[in-house]
Simulated assay, not measured.
Amino acid sequence: MEQAKSVGLIDALLVAAVDATGLETQHVSEHFGKRRGAGKGSGHRQRVWPKLAAILHVHSRLIIGAITGIGPSQDSPDFTPAMRQAVALLDLSTVLADAGYDAEHNHRLCHDELGIERSIIALNRRNAGRRWPKTPYRWTLHKHFLRVLYHQRWHIEMV
């Protein structure tokens, strides 16, 4: 990290983006196999796959935290160990995440334990038993969602 800072890759505004993805286990992706017609009638479907949850420093696009696992699984449990890795490398000011990480305990981890100023996690509308969030951090985010900053989350999708 020190070398990255010395060459100007790490900027003053320390924004990180979080996401998880499933990885292929074969040399041909399932999507490509379907397009070329292979395996249509075979009934073979990949039931589990390797999964990677990564945290990316937005400005430099350096991966600063990563957790591996097996999918399909929820994204949120990987948030805590990956964030602890990232904060050990950089003092982050903002974390951006999609609705898969929407939980009050993730906001509390960022603000109360890790000292991160802003956690901008999209609200998961599928969990809507009620119209508005009732927990403090999620309620604040509902009222003051920094959309312009959240739109920098595309960097993690690119990586």
Rank of each mutant, 00 (worst) to 15 (best):
F145I: 07
E24W: 00
Y137M: 12
I67G: 00
S119W: 00
L52D: 05
V7Y: 04
T21G: 11
L141N: 15
N124K: 14
R45A: 07
V58W: 06
V95E: 02
P50T: 06
E113A: 07
T21C: 08
H57Q: 03
A54N: 05
W49L: 08
S60L: 12
L92C: 06
N106W: 04
T25P: 02
Y150M: 10
F32D: 10
G8S: 03
Q46K: 10
L109K: 09
V148R: 15
H57T: 04
S60W: 10
A97H: 10
S93N: 12
K40W: 09
I121L: 04
Q46S: 12
A122K: 14
A82P: 11
G33T: 07
L23G: 01
L114D: 03
P50R: 06
A17L: 02
L92P: 08
D11L: 10
D102M: 08
Q85F: 03
R47A: 10
R61H: 13
R84M: 01
Q74M: 09
S60D: 11
L23K: 01
K34T: 05
R47Y: 04
V58F: 05
P81W: 06
R84E: 05
S42P: 06
A88I: 00
R130H: 11
D112Y: 01
R126G: 02
V95I: 15
V87R: 09
L9H: 10
G129L: 07
W139C: 13
G71T: 02
I55A: 13
Q85V: 02
R36Q: 12
R47L: 13
T25L: 11
L123Q: 02
A54M: 10
H105T: 12
R118T: 02
K134I: 14
C110N: 11
R61P: 00
R131Q: 13
R35S: 06
V7K: 05
R47F: 10
P136M: 12
Q26H: 00
V15M: 07
L62V: 13
G37N: 05
H144C: 13
P133G: 02
A53G: 13
H59E: 13
G8M: 02
H59Q: 14
R125G: 10
A128R: 15
D112G: 03
L90D: 01
L62G: 04
A16K: 00
C110D: 10
D78V: 00
Q3V: 09
P77I: 01
E157Y: 04
I121Y: 03
H144V: 11
H144Y: 09
N127G: 11
Y137F: 15
T25F: 03
H44L: 12
A122F: 01
L146H: 14
I156A: 01
P77V: 00
H111Y: 08
